[in-house]
Amino acid sequence: MEPWPPVDDDALTTELGAALWDTGPVSEAYLSAALAAFTWRTADAELAVAELTFDSAVDAELVGMTRSAASARTLSFRSGSVLVEIEVSDAGIVGQLSPSGGGRVSARTATGTYDEASVDAMGFFSLGVPPPGPVQLCARTVGYALSTAWVCLR
C-alpha cells in the first residue's frame, strides 16, 4: 500500500486540493435540512434527552424475541430513572411513561407538532400514526420533562 499522506509534495497538494474543493455532489436539500435542524436548539434546551435504548426493528433478533412480535415495533427510551416505552403500528402509537403520574405528551416532526395527548394515571398514552421522517416525543409531568432522541418511526 502507498504510504499516506503522500511523501511527494505535488501528490499531496493535488489530494489536498481535491479535499478542499471537490466536496462531491452534496445536494442542497441535505444542507438545508441540516441548517434547519438548528431551530430546535432553543425549543429543547430545558428538556432532558431520553436516549434510545431499544428498537425491535434492529435489536429484536439480538435479544431473541420471537417473530410474532414483528407486527408492532417497540422502542424504549431512557433518561436517568425515567423510561418511555412505545409501540408503533398501523393504528398509531401507544406508550407508557414510568414513573407515571399524569401529564401530557406531544409528538413532533422536524416541521412541528403533529399530535398531543394526555397521560393517564398509569402512565399510558396514545398518539396518531407518525408521519415519515424523524419524530420526537416530548413528555411533561409533575415530576419531570423530557424529549426522546429523534428517530424515524416508519
Binding site: 422536524a110 424523524p134 428517530v151
Partner: peptide
C-alpha cells in the same frame, strides 16, 4: 431522513 435525523 437519515441526514435529517443525524443533524437533529
Amino acid at each position: 431522513d437519515v441526514n435529517q435525523t443525524v443533524w437533529l
